[in-house]
Design a protein around this nucleic acid. Structure first.
Ligand SMILES: [Mn+2]
Ligand SMILES: [Mn+2]
Ligand SMILES: [Mn+2]
Ligand SMILES: [Mn+2]
Lengths: 218, 218
DNA sequence: TATCAAATTTAGGCAAAGCTAAATATTTGA
DNA sequence: TCAAATATTTAGCTTTGCCTAAATTTGATA
């Protein structure tokens, strides 16, 4: 079955919300995620239900069927493999890849996907530290913690970021924070919970609570 | 200006027809090229004219404006660079690339295009022997001849093919004909103009007139 | 339990890109 | 020159995916 970009985006949104813990996904959440009007979501979930890609009911909300899950995770796989490809092979930076990958993830070609995967050596994580589902939809789950919940004095490693926007990623670049970077939490400011962080042997920077919530560490 | 896939495809079709010698392109020709109904073409050429990408009049037909030409040749450039990339870097065969390139040519990212071009070493020709326009739309023109017009006894080199369909390309594979292959025209059958051709030191094959019209040689 | 807020759906519309069938133009060529 | 063939346009319709505004439903809470 060939799906439209819109349909794939809805499935991906539901998939992402599922992973965030909500196994029942309501229309409002999908609408927020995709920045689409709830009335439009009503139409689309109905269509996806008819196509048996989700099961939807007013009370239960939406949940992916086995087939819907397969397509959603394949789309995420494509997105993250393309992002990795762009960074590894085409000199893109991590703040430049998301928008292009949003387009590339809809290209239909199994061979293309397989060959990109092979060329990259079957990577397990994308440039933002997000796990890449394998061909069966399975992916490595890392139990990380937001930097905002780390105790004073702890030494941690950055494993992923919770915001792929160019603005946020460039802010991190500016602060000197990158994937796999080692941080030491020097001080937690009591009045606003912002952090004074030492970046492994380099410098000390202040990070807002907002930023710290989006930096995941182990 | 961001164009839809459909708009880009129309511009590309007009561009291709222009290169075939027809500088005035009529709706019927566009319709045939894109396998679209002429009534639909009327709507679209009107829109492209309003957007100043073509100039259209009932009597003159359609002709690309400078901007329309720029976009058309950029789209062709993308198509052919992607085809080349797929063959050179991802183990695709020449009969597998066209359909995927039809999708990839619509991805919007100048950086992506430039990096692919750089990775490939600024190739001048695609896997079907078609010239790749450079960033300014200029491309190498090779004055080739259809094999169907070659005299008996001549020794020629295959430089391009006039049909990118998987069916035709696999037929050529089967016959042992490939780009840059050397052929000697042994005999022209008088009753149907089909050719007996020797493939450089390998074997002799019969080629139908139809096939010979689509094989370009120097 | 009555009320208010949030979520969902209905109703009606719009733009893009296609279609068919019928009406008009334009060419061609007998 | 005029009829037939070809090309173009009009009119009206379809699907997809979105929108706003106005119900309606559900659910929390006072
Ligand atoms: Mn992304
Ligand atoms: Mn990512
Ligand atoms: Mn092609
Ligand atoms: Mn080609």
């Amino acid at each position: 079955m060939i799906l439209s970009n819109a349909e794939e985006n809805y499935l991906k949104a539901i998939y992402a919300l599922n992973l965030l813990g909500k196994e029942r996904v309501n229309n409002q959440a999908i609408a927020d995620k995709l920045t689409i009007n709830p009335a439009s979501v009503t139409d689309m979930v109905r269509k996806l239900d008819e196509k048996k890609l989700i099961s939807y009911s007013r009370s239960e909300g939406a949940r992916l069927t086995r087939e819907g899950l397969r397509i959603a995770s394949k789309t995420v796989r494509k997105h993250r493999l393309w992002e990795t490809f762009l960074v590894e092979k085409l000199n893109f930076t991590w703040d430049e890849v998301h928008d292009v990958a949003e387009q590339l993830e809809h290209i239909q070609s199994d061979k293309l996907l397989d060959e990109i995967d092979k060329l990259l050596g079957h990577p397990k994580f994308d440039p933002h530290g997000d796990p890449i589902p394998d061909a069966n939809g399975k992916m490595t789950r890392i139990h990380s913690t937001p930097l905002s919940e780390i105790k004073e004095g702890s030494k941690v490693k950055v494993v992923s970021v919770g915001d792929n926007s160019a603005a946020f990623l460039r802010y991190l670049d500016k602060q000197g924070i990158s994937l796999n970077g080692i941080l030491v939490v020097k001080e937690i400011q009591s009045f606003d919970q912002s952090l004074l962080v030492e970046i492994k042997g380099k410098k000390e920077v202040f990070l807002s609570t907002e930023a710290c919530k989006k930096i995941f560490v182990v």
